[in-house]
Design a protein around this nucleic acid. Structure first.
Length: 504
RNA sequence: GCGCCCGUAGCUCAGCUGGAUAGAGCAACGGACUUCUAAUCCGUAGGUCGAACGUUCGAAUCGUUCCGGGCGCGCCA
């Protein structure tokens, strides 16, 4: 059980006469306590009584928990400090447990899904890392989750791409709106004869992503959908929502909150992307996923409602979430790098990883909320390596390993008297599963680096103030703290995909 | 014009289902290595939370209207 949940349960049982939905713990500043309850304010509205008086009554009821919780009141706020013995006990039990989600949907995460007509760039890297961390996070809480890369290996862009390759190979000029640049030249030069250029690019994508430690359970090719008649499938699945107008075939998304209906098949017989995407998402539904999560660039946000319409029209119980990400602006030496896919003037994802390393690349790409544009300065990420948060975290881990080596053979245990730096660190360790569950529920992987950085910071402070090797009374306790912190750093770094060196 | 996202310290951002004195990191300034790794720590300074109204015991958080920035509004992919 997570720390917060454990405390909440204790409190609920002692306040069973009150509306349980009002019992919600918040985290106050450390001086006030480990948790706080603002139920007095909420009740005062209902009961029309002075919140201070209500708080007094609640505190009165909670005094029975005094062996576990220390309750106090400050101008209506009920502050809760967890007893040190309970902290120690929780921490040692926590060491043996795993976080567990209270739900078990079957989840499909789809992300990156770059067109196989060019190399991956830093923006793809952002989706890849956010998606991958989310994937690992959901697995860590026991979620039933798969991830998938959708390959657009059909359609006009692909034809143009192949025509461009063909032209370059034969020394002809690149067709209008075709593809050129160093990446294409490499494809022409290095592609073996027995693979298609599209498959070769897909393989390049796979390798770039594996360099970043991002693996996919499935690479879903759009071309496999075209083995069936797309329009026929949609016709069969949505007989009431499909109609013909002006020579085109339309889908009635306006029945589901969209602001206009959308075309499935143009009057020239070509299918739109939307038609293929409907069938792709039908495929996801047919594979019995309860929760479909897509990570898309912010420029696709207009697309959400129509896909949602198609999904809900088929199966209302499916949860459809889209994580919208703003693009990444790449900088070097403080100067923005302009990128154009067509001309091939492009810094590839591989270049970035090569220059700043997997750990730093992953950390910086997942650290911020995805709905904020990200300025990614390659020079800064390498030059300021001394102040790099990645090293800060890794250094904490290395320090622990070094201490553990020195403590080899010494007993590990717990004692009662602890000071503030000990305690702050322990409380933060205990909150780890709360953070995992919170980040899972909200699909917000960026909360992890935040937590981990804070943990490292508390550890470094602890390191300064709390010598481990002192005497028989204190040393075993601090060794126990070291193990707990180490476990959390390793576990959390594992989700972020960042290495934890033993020496630095 | 319409829709979505964003506006918090010099910079990059947390905090947003209403709660206590608005928090970090970087940059700046001042301290701490004969003592478990100074890739560290401790301290100082830094704010009309874009603006104005409104809702109420209480607003960075909710509502309305502006201002500023990003992105979309195809029978493109």
């Amino acid at each position: 059980m997570s720390f917060r949940h454990a405390i909440e349960t204790t409190i609920s049982t002692h306040l069973s006469d009150l509306d349980q939905s009002l019992i919600e713990l918040s985290i106050p500043r450390y001086e006030h306590g480990d948790f706080a309850l603002n139920i007095a304010f909420k009740l005062s509205k209902i009961q029309k009584k002075n919140p201070m008086l209500i708080a007094d009554e609640v505190v009165q009821q909670l005094t029975q928990t005094s062996d576990v919780l220390h309750i106090s009141q400050l101008s209506g706020f009920i502050n809760i400090k967890v007893d040190d013995n309970y902290l120690i006990k929780y921490m040692s039990e926590f060491m043996l447990s795993s976080p567990k989600w209270d739900k078990d949907p079957s989840i499909l995460l789809e992300y990156v899904s770059a067109n196989p007509t060019g190399p991956l760039h830093i923006g793809h890297g952002r989706w890849a890392v956010i998606g991958d961390v989310l994937y690992r996070l959901l697995q860590a809480v026991g979620g039933n989750v798969k991830n998938e890369f959708y390959v657009n290996d059909a359609g006009n862009q692909v034809k143009t791409f192949e025509a461009s390759i063909h032209a370059i190979k034969n020394g002809q000029s690149i067709p209008e709106n075709g593809y050129g640049g160093p990446f294409i030249d490499t494809v022409v030069a290095e592609k073996p004869d027995d693979v298609t250029s599209i498959d070769y690019v897909i393989e390049c994508h796979r390798q770039s992503l594996e360099t970043l430690d991002c693996k996919f359970d499935r690479w879903f090719k759009e071309s496999t959908l075209h083995q069936s008649d797309i329009i026929q499938i949609i016709q069969d699945e949505y007989p009431d929502l499909i109609y013909k107008k002006d020579g085109a075939v339309w889908f009635k998304t306006t029945d589901y909150n969209d602001d206009k209906d959308r075309v499935l098949q143009k009057d020239n017989g070509d299918l739109t992307y939307f038609a293929c995407d409907i069938v792709y998402h039908l495929n996801k539904i047919n594979r019995k996923y309860d929760h479909i999560i897509n990570i898309w660039g912010a420029d696709h946000h207009g697309y959400i409602e129509r896909i949602r319409a198609a999904i809900l029209a088929k199966k209302e119980s499916v949860t459809f979430s889209v994580i919208l990400g703003q693009l990444v602006n790449l900088f070097k030496d403080g100067e923005p790098i302009k990128m154009s896919k067509r001309t091939g003037n492009l810094i590839e994802l591989d270049d970035v990883i090569h220059e700043i390393g997997v750990d730093a690349t992953r950390y910086f790409l997942v650290e911020k909320r995805p709905d904020l544009p990200l300025d990614f300065d390659m020079t800064k990420a390498t030059m300021t390596s001394m102040d790099n948060p990645v090293y800060y975290i890794q250094y904490a881990h290395a320090r622990i390993c070094s201490l553990q080596k020195k403590c080899e053979g010494l007993p590990e245990g717990a004692h009662t008297a602890i000071n503030d730096a000990d305690r702050k660190l322990m409380v933060h360790v205990c909150r780890y599963y709360d953070v995992l569950l919170d980040a899972s529920n909200s699909l917000e992987p960026y909360k992890l680096p935040q937590y981990l950085h804070e943990l490292a910071s508390l550890f470094h402070s602890f390191y300064q103030k709390c010598p481990v090797i002192v005497d028989d009374a204190i040393t075993p306790h601090r060794i126990a703290i070291l193990s707990a912190v180490q476990k959390v750093i390793q576990h959390c770094s594992g989700i972020l995909g960042i290495s934890t060196p033993e020496k630095m």
